[in-house]
Amino acid sequence: MTGTIPDVASPRAKRSQAMRGGINTELYAWLFMRVSGVILIVLIFGHLFVNLMVGDGVAAIDFAFVAGKWSEPFWQVWDLLMLWLAMIHGTNGVRTIINDYAERDVTRIVLKALLYVALVVTVVMGTLVIFTFDPCPVGSPADLLPSFCSA
């Protein structure tokens, strides 16, 4: 055989040096996409149903609506899980897309750095908002606040 392509690993080749030992991050990333996807269906469909289908839908969304939801731990946990899972799922998906199309090393590194900064900033900010949120800020007009504030 006068091979023009040297050293193409056969499908049955042993795992390369880089792969041997350690944890297989790509495998776990692949699994995470599937597990988080299934959970996200419940979280996102529930979110869309309660916010867009029940009552007056978008037309009813305002500060009082959000405050009403986040005064209950149930929706705080729901939204927190949705935030983390969707952001990590989306970031990992976009990482794959960047790896597929950005061929130059610099481009790939810069794009992924931006992606990870966006991930951390968004998740940290969103988490802080959910837990430091005050449904009845002092000095705000009562008609903008949920009714339980004046009770």
Binding site: T122, M125, G126, L128, V129, P141, L145
Partner: peptide, 23 residues
């Protein structure tokens, strides 16, 4: 997937405004 991710970034940002003021 790409579209949803970009929207999610904006959506978390606009919702974070509840922390600024009701107005």
């Amino acid at each position: 997937g790409m579209l949803l991710f970009l929207f999610l970034l904006v959506h978390v940002l606009d919702t974070a405004l509840v922390r600024v003021s009701p107005e």
